[in-house]
Design a protein around this nucleic acid. Structure first.
Lengths: 377, 377
DNA sequence: GTGAAAGCGCTAACAG
DNA sequence: CTGTTAGCGCTTTCAC
């Protein structure tokens, strides 16, 4: 019979290099390849006996379905791209280390839970980088801090691949959805906290780049100052330069109109400010209140412990992935979705003039910022 | 003609959803699909004119070759798995945060430079996790800190997929190659440094887990003590628990045989020790010398700045990728390769009793540890 | 219930 | 130098 001949041909001719194919399993189990496919994928309505038999044979042969073939056939790879926009030479920086690490960890975890894996891809600064992007079959992509006219995002969307961004896209980037913190509310809330703690002139350590985070936070600061009749006192520096932060912190405290409280937008600003304060003989929090935006746990045990604003990157990563996979699996025609996530102010000794004690601060006090819509979980 | 009919059939019947296929390009350019393939991949010896023409048509049509099809056909996906063994609930922790982040950054960068992308995959603790692994076509895999009998590694090797590990594999794990630091040399060198700085009794903050890093470092410490006639003074704690480190640091300094110098194996130990020292009124470095293994830059601006041992994760990541891609592209029959990489002791104020100054330590002094073979770059 | 056959989009032999 | 053809290994109608 033709069938038999076919099987023989395949078995004899397997150049698969030792790895068993679906045909080998079918032959060994004495069924057709359709049955094998159905049995292994839980499709069709086969008798349980057949299903078990096929599975045991497949196991015995050490059969692994070919991901490439499955992808080609079904059009889904189970792969999600992850990229972060950079402002430098490297294909991607991990400025805000802890933020990225935690965001990526949560995203990876959430993706895996739904059967997807993340592929780390470069921000397409170089033309060469495009090659890698089109060499991998992506079901969707996560972009962290997309730049206003990201060519990769544009291209992906054109191809009909869903893109969800961490950080609201500037310009008219056509992302499928985005997730972001309510940066204005967070900064406003934080400045109120400092004012309550007795700050009269609050300074800001900000960045020179034009990304949304920096822009929104700075604007919120300026508005707050305006509303409270305070002259803005700030220093801006290139956030990707590790040394520039220390210099900027120093400059801020060297000013004639030296602030009595400072908020630093970037992770290392806390230690930078502490070091600068020591150089000027300023005691924290007695002479200077300090707060910075950070996900790092080192600020729990600095001297003194420093109050931090957490953007809750884990929650963001999880949400981004949920939105993305929903878009991948659902009908992609839905309206543009976005979700604004709450932040968390972790109050420690550096921003409290009263009740300062040499003991450890009991445990992180959490002040929920006044967050508007927010969402599930 | 058959050809013409074929083309018409395809054009009419493209269910590709708007995306152009290689046939569309061929039709539009008036050549065969082979010519298109060759023109785009720089194969064959076509006239430059044809090549350019085909390329321009492809561009105009927005043609993107299907990665899935290419992978199926060629057997190479351009994808490399990245996984880190964990000791907890999460599919992967980023203990030693900065270490992992930097290692991954360098590895990603090195891979991209050679046209590969990294896929983040879970340590296979759960059975469910196996699914994801076999759902992605991998050309090779990087494993960080492989556990002694990692089932995923075993399975991959069985399938003939190259695996390179960061950290020498314990047991008889059959990895293709590995890269590691010379931990014994690093620790020995570091202890010598402390002794030279005047330490009489050096304590160790170590971990309870049995991974190679912890084991080798601890052993080196014990041997050093033996050689120098010092009683070992150490506390071990579960390294993945963020609070346990602070407690262990405290316990170490509370001992009756309190050490006058401490080396902490894990990243947060520096701040933990500093905090504990403050609680006991110990001045660093006057009463206590402190060193920890860390990649974090915060230790440059703590008070005082802390001497750290850097494992140079960037170099390790790069090397791991080079070895892996060489194995993927070369004939895989080569002998098991391994490479031992140097570490770097960054000496700061916390380990120097003389010359202590309120100024910043000029700049990181680098002491090359006595490293044996080492290698290229 | 089970099997045969038709491709997914591409690359690599091999003809012309 | 260019075109035709045969699959890569799988899923999926559609007959039986």
């Amino acid at each position: 019979m033709t069938a038999a001949k076919h099987q023989v041909t395949r078995s004899a001719g397997r150049r698969t290099g030792g790895r068993a194919g679906i045909r080998d399993v079918a032959a060994a189990a004495g069924v057709s390849i359709t049955t094998v496919s159905d049995a292994l994928n839980g499709k069709g309505r086969l008798p349980d006996a057949t299903r078990r038999h096929v599975r045991s044979v497949a196991d015995r042969l050490g059969y692994r379905p070919s991901a490439a073939a499955r992808t080609l056939r079904t059009g889904k790879s189970g792969l999600i791209g992850l990229t972060v926009t950079t402002y430098g030479e490297e294909p991607f920086t991990f400025t805000e280390f802890a933020y990225f690490a935690e965001m990526a960890r949560a995203a990876t975890s959430a993706a895996l839970a739904r059967g997807y894996a993340l592929v780390i891809l470069p921000a397409a600064s170089q033309h060469r980088d495009f090659d890698v992007w089109s060499n991998v079959a992506l079901d969707g992509t996560v972009v962290i801090d997309p730049s206003d006219h990201d060519p990769v995002v544009t291209e992906l969307v054109r191809q009909g691949i869903p893109v969800v961004s961490d950080g609201r896209p500037g310009g008219s980037l056509p992302v499928t959805a985005w997730v972001d913190n309510d940066h204005e509310a967070a900064v406003t809330n934080l400045l109120d906290h400092l004012a309550t703690a007795g700050a009269r002139r609050i300074g800001l350590l900000t960045g020179t780049s034009t990304d949304t985070y920096t822009r929104l936070s700075t604007t919120a600061y300026l508005h707050w100052c305006e509303r409270h009749g305070q002259d803005p006192v700030y220093e801006a520096y290139p956030a990707h330069d590790p040394c520039a932060g220390a210099v900027a912190a120093d400059r801020l405290l060297a000013r004639p109109d030296r602030p009595d409280a400072v908020y630093g937008l970037f992770d290392p600003n806390g230690t930078d400010l502490l070091a600068a304060a020591r150089r000027y003989g300023l005691r924290v929090p007695d002479d200077l209140l300090v707060v910075c935006c950070s996900e790092s746990s080192v600020y729990a045990s600095t001297e003194p412990p420093i109050t931090t604003l957490s953007l809750k990157p884990g929650r963001i990563g999880t949400t981004v992935i949920q939105l993305l996979i929903d878009a991948i699996e659902g009908q992609s025609g839905r309206a543009e979705a976005h979700q604004v996530m709450p932040t968390e102010l972790i109050v420690r000794a550096s921003s409290q003039r009263i009740g300062r004690s040499p003991r450890r601060v009991p445990s992180a006090t959490v002040v929920a910022p006044r967050t508007p819509p927010a969402a599930d979980q």
